Amino acid sequence: MYVGFHVNLSQNIALRFLDVRLYRIEHGYNQPQHTIWTKAMDELHSILSTIRSRQLEHIQFHAWVGYDAVRHDSESEQPSVVLKELDLRDLHGVMSRPNFDTLKHVGVKMYRLRYPYTFVDAAGLREMLELMVRGILQPWSASGILNVTCY
């Protein structure tokens, strides 16, 4: 099943595959990085918390990410520091529900938003995005079912 955002999956108790398109994850004017990622986590939580199927085997997320969602201009903007500022308890609690016990694969495909006249270390960006996603989706990363790809 393909979904965008603001979806309620509670009536679909036979769901086996979920394909989710997320909002753009990018820096707003004068926003700290944890605010950018909190919005993405809230979106994930709002979708995942409605899942009632105990047959779900595969989830695929697609996200378009601005280069500034993982800046590294200062120590306070490193992914490990930003992850510590996020309150991941509710999201991780939802991800640990029995509804997700049958999951075999969770994929995250991240597509970089391109901005004119922006020069970014693509390899460094991919590495930082992967660290952020693995931290946010830590229960699934720890179980070895998470695959993160950055384009």
Rank of each mutant, 00 (worst) to 15 (best):
E43P: 02
D101A: 14
H92C: 09
D42P: 02
D90H: 06
V106N: 03
H105M: 15
G107I: 04
I36W: 01
G93H: 04
P98K: 09
L44M: 15
Q60T: 13
K39P: 01
G107H: 11
L88E: 01
W37Q: 00
S76L: 10
Y67R: 03
G66P: 03
D73Y: 09
R71K: 15
M95G: 04
P98S: 12
V94I: 14
K39S: 12
Q78D: 01
E57R: 14
N99V: 06
I59Q: 06
P98T: 11
D42L: 12
S96N: 08
L56G: 03
S49V: 11
Q55D: 13
R71T: 12
S96R: 03
V94A: 05
D42N: 15
F61D: 01
I59G: 08
F100L: 06
W37L: 00
E57Q: 15
L44I: 06
H45M: 12
K104L: 15
I59V: 15
V108Y: 10
M41E: 11
H62T: 10
I47E: 02
N99A: 13
D73C: 09
A40G: 07
H92E: 14
H58K: 14
G107D: 13
F61L: 15
D90P: 02
H72M: 10
P98I: 06
D73W: 08
D90V: 05
V81E: 13
L48A: 02
V106H: 02
Q78V: 00
T38L: 12
K39E: 09
S80K: 14
L91D: 00
Q78H: 04
S46P: 06
A40K: 02
S76W: 06
L103Y: 08
F100P: 05
D87F: 04
H105L: 15
S46M: 11
V81S: 10
A69R: 01
E75S: 08
V106P: 02
E57P: 04
I36G: 01
D68P: 06
E75M: 07
K39H: 11
P79T: 04
H72Q: 12
M41A: 10
P98D: 13
I47R: 01
D90G: 05
L103E: 13
D101V: 08
R89P: 00
A63S: 15
L86V: 03
